[in-house]
Amino acid sequence: MSTLTKDIQGHWANIHPILTIRNEREYDSAIKRLNELLDEIGDNERHPLYGLLDTLGTLIHVYEETHHPMPECTGADVLRFFMEEHGLNQSDLSEIGSQGVVSEILNGKRALNIRQIRLLAKRFQVSPAVFI
């Protein structure tokens, strides 16, 4: 066994628990660790642990994609969800159009346009990407 391999094995025993996500318990621990790193490092790419932050974020993303996939949904599905969450009806969304326009969007007869997406994103304080 090479010296490099021996050195890596020695360090891997300490790093392995930090970079392993095989179940929900390890996932929860990884999220907690990631949040702690984000609190300390933020977006400082010069911080000595930024590479760890980036790697841990990637591992969490892969675990989520595999075990908690996002369902496919349309902009109308997202709008319907937000309307339900906020107790809104079609007439409450006059900024995106008449009640008839909102109805057509919700029934898939009309797509959301850029202006409507921007207004909805602002109203619900989310990224416009959620409606695309």
Rank of each mutant, 00 (worst) to 15 (best):
L119K: 09
S127A: 12
T5V: 11
E65T: 10
R22S: 09
R46I: 05
H68F: 14
G87A: 03
P17L: 04
L112Y: 01
P48I: 10
Q116R: 12
E104G: 04
A76H: 00
E72W: 10
K6S: 12
I132C: 08
E64K: 11
I8Y: 15
N14Y: 12
D77I: 01
L112F: 02
W12M: 07
E85R: 15
S91E: 10
T66K: 15
T20M: 11
F131L: 01
E72V: 12
N113I: 10
I8Q: 11
A121F: 00
R123T: 06
K32C: 07
M1A: 14
E64F: 04
R25E: 10
L52T: 06
I114S: 08
Y27C: 02
V101D: 02
H86F: 12
S94E: 12
G100W: 06
R123D: 03
L93F: 03
S98A: 04
K6I: 11
L106E: 00
G57K: 06
P128W: 08
L49H: 14
R22Y: 09
I21Q: 01
I114N: 07
F81S: 11
L120T: 04
G100Q: 13
L37E: 05
N89M: 09
N44R: 11
G75C: 05
D7E: 15
A13R: 14
T66Q: 14
P128Q: 11
I31T: 01
P48T: 07
A76N: 01
K122S: 07
L34E: 01
Y50S: 02
N35K: 14
R115E: 13
I8V: 15
E84K: 15
P17T: 04
V62T: 10
L79A: 00
G97L: 03
N14G: 06
R46L: 10
F124E: 01
Y27R: 06
L53F: 02
H68A: 05
V102E: 02
F81H: 13
V126D: 02
P128C: 09
P71V: 11
V62E: 09
A30F: 08
A121W: 00
T74Q: 02
Q90S: 04
